[in-house]
């Protein structure tokens, strides 16, 4: 009986392992991540339950820039040349977010010829923090070879990032999830501020000012990991940038919401008006500080 049970278990184990070996690094699957080895980096679930999704969306940031008819430029992108130099989990997670934003920007402008470099870099970093199994590199590479596949490319890219993020949070590696979000945010802010330097559109100025809301939330998340020295180092890098936002105010005038049914679709319209009060001087300081922080983070 025991012998029979042993063989059944062995077979199930082997089947399960084979089922997942198609897109996972077989030797690294059961490695214990660095972060699990430091007890003060493990955050209880209740402390991270206040996570906010969609904190910084590559799709939305790139869509804003494209909607203003701003031409694509690869000078805004972080170079993938040094991806192998990011050797710690912290660097890998942070730069995963940075490249994630850049990938969203490339996808939005349908620059499929450059996408391959970024998906390769993302795969390298994702493998580094043992979440590469959620990044469907083979499919993305195939899709990137034809510019008719943009919708699928966008869906798989965004979905892969969501899965990596969720897996990290569920497995008590939320510090790496916060780093990924930080990377996406800083690169998004860098992109919008750099574009504003050349195209000073009021919508971009407003977007820059609104980042006060996101940065405040981000700093709260980073503060949760107060015993994690490396996360605190990044929080310290961001503090001077937060300082630049302190006098920016956002006022909201409440309006009456509307609900209509249009062509069978239910539409809710928010009629509030928000006004971002930000001066040209404040924008200038934010642009300079964002550039400084972002360039420091990608060179670490």
């Amino acid at each position: 009986m025991i012998k029979k049970c042993f063989y059944i278990l062995l077979t199930v184990c082997m089947l399960n392992a084979c089922g997942s070996c198609g897109n996972r690094g077989s030797s690294s699957d059961l490695e214990v991540p660095d972060t699990l080895m430091y007890s003060d980096a493990i955050i209880p679930d209740d402390e991270i339950s206040g996570f906010i999704d969609n904190m910084s969306s590559p799709v939305e940031m790139a869509a804003l820039i494209k909607s203003l008819d701003v031409k694509f430029s690869n000078k805004y992108l972080a170079s993938t040349d040094n991806v192998e130099d990011f050797s710690t989990e912290y660097q890998q997670a942070l730069n995963l977010g940075i490249y994630g934003l850049d990938l969203g920007y490339l996808n939005m402008y349908n620059k499929t010829n450059a996408v391959l470099d970024y998906i390769s870099a993302i795969k390298t970093l994702a493998d580094g923090i043992n979440v590469g199994q959620f990044f469907d590199f083979a499919t993305l590479r195939r899709l990137s070879q034809n510019d008719q596949n943009l919708d699928s490319l966008m869906y798989i890219s965004v979905h892969s990032f969501n899965q990596m993020d969720r897996y990290l949070r569920k497995n008590k590696r939320s510090n790496l999830s916060v780093l990924m979000i930080t990377g996406v945010w800083i690169e998004g802010n860098y992109l919008v501020t750099q574009v504003y330097k050349e195209v000073p559109h009021p919508e971009l100025k407003e977007k820059i000012g609104e980042q006060k809301i996101v940065l405040d939330k981000l700093m709260l998340f980073l503060e949760v990991f107060k015993n994690d020295k490396q996360l605190q180092a990044i929080a310290n890098d961001l503090k001077p940038l937060k300082e630049q936002y302190k006098d920016i105010t956002i006022t909201i005038q409440k309006g009456e919401p509307q609900a209509i049914e249009k062509d069978g679709t239910l539409v809710f319209i928010q009629n509030d008006v928000s006004i971002v009060n930000i001066t040209d001087e404040q924008v200038k300081s934010i642009i300079a500080k964002t550039e400084e922080v972002r360039n420091k983070l990608i060179s670490k």
């Binding site: 809301i213 956002i250 909201i252 679709t265 239910l266 539409v267 809710f268 928010q270 509030d272 928000s274």
Partner: peptide, 25 residues
């Protein structure tokens, strides 16, 4: 501010659109 279920009419919708005018949580 939005729902896939209208409790007044009892009608269900598979989705709804939301035109957001205020950045926030």
């Amino acid at each position: 501010i939005g729902s896939t279920y209208n409790s007044t009419t009892g009608k269900d919708y598979p989705s709804f659109d939301f035109k957001c005018q205020v950045t926030g949580v």
